[in-house]
Design a protein around this nucleic acid. Structure first.
Length: 207
DNA sequence: AGCACGATTAACT
DNA sequence: GTTAATCGTGCTC
């Protein structure tokens, strides 16, 4: 198997919607103590752009919670919500500008047994098909907030994969912003590709 | 110190 | 389709 290249900081320093679109199909990788490698291809992602974006946590200014989003690109912004769930974002654009992409779903390919153990034995299709689900499966919580996913020997990073053709990409309004005013509520900054459309030639669990 | 709420999920009718 | 779960966070007093 050829070694894939981890995405460098320059990838994330670009405009947030461009980064979100470009991350579709890329491989989110989690390395754990003990050597297990968990990974999947990104199938759903949203852009949150600046304090003018009233759907973005940065709308109320910089706080202890959202501080990571104001930092340099290529770092994780992980936050807690609904009293029980963690969400994984990757910070985008330049240092000082608050923006990030929320990873909402991946197609699980590596480390399925570990993910299943963390997800109460749920079937493969339900392991990582939601933003809190993938954090649970990949053991991501507040310890990963502010983590540099571009550093060498990172335990959380994103590997390059072939670009997804535009014809396979669906754009919709972002999910869960029901009390956010227009135009932010309906602006189509969610990017989605159906998992079955992603090429993965029978790739399975590590041998 | 108290309180309303949330970029969700799972279970239920 | 509806709703309970569950608590860190940010805001007000």
């Amino acid at each position: 198997m050829t070694e894939k290249q981890a995405l460098a900081r320059a990838f994330f320093s670009r405009e947030t919607r461009l980064v979100a679109r470009a991350l579709l199909g890329k491989r989110l990788v989690r390395l754990e103590k003990g050597g297990s490698r968990l990974a999947g291809l990104i199938t759903e992602i949203e852009a949150y752009v600046g304090s003018d974006d009233l759907g973005c946590h940065a709308r109320a200014g910089r706080t202890a919670r959202n501080a990571s989003m104001w930092g340099p690109p290529g770092y994780a912004y992980v936050y807690f919500t609904y009293g029980m769930h963690w969400m994984l974002n990757i910070v985008t654009e330049q240092d000082g500008f608050p923006a990030a992409v929320l990873i909402r779903a991946i197609k699980p390919l590596e480390g399925l047994e570990v993910m299943q153990a963390r997800r109460s034995g749920r079937p493969r299709h339900a392991l990582t098909d939601g933003p809190a689900k993938l954090c649970q499966a990949l053991n991501i919580d507040r310890r990963m907030d502010g983590y540099d996913i571009c550093q060498t020997k990172a335990s959380l990073f994103i590997e390059n994969e072939p670009e997804i053709p535009e014809t396979l990409v669906t754009k919709t309004p972002r999910v869960g912003l029901n009390h956010v005013p227009e135009p932010w509520k309906s602006i189509p900054w969610r990017y989605f590709v159906h998992p079955s459309k992603l090429l993965n030639p029978n790739e399975e669990e590590q041998p």
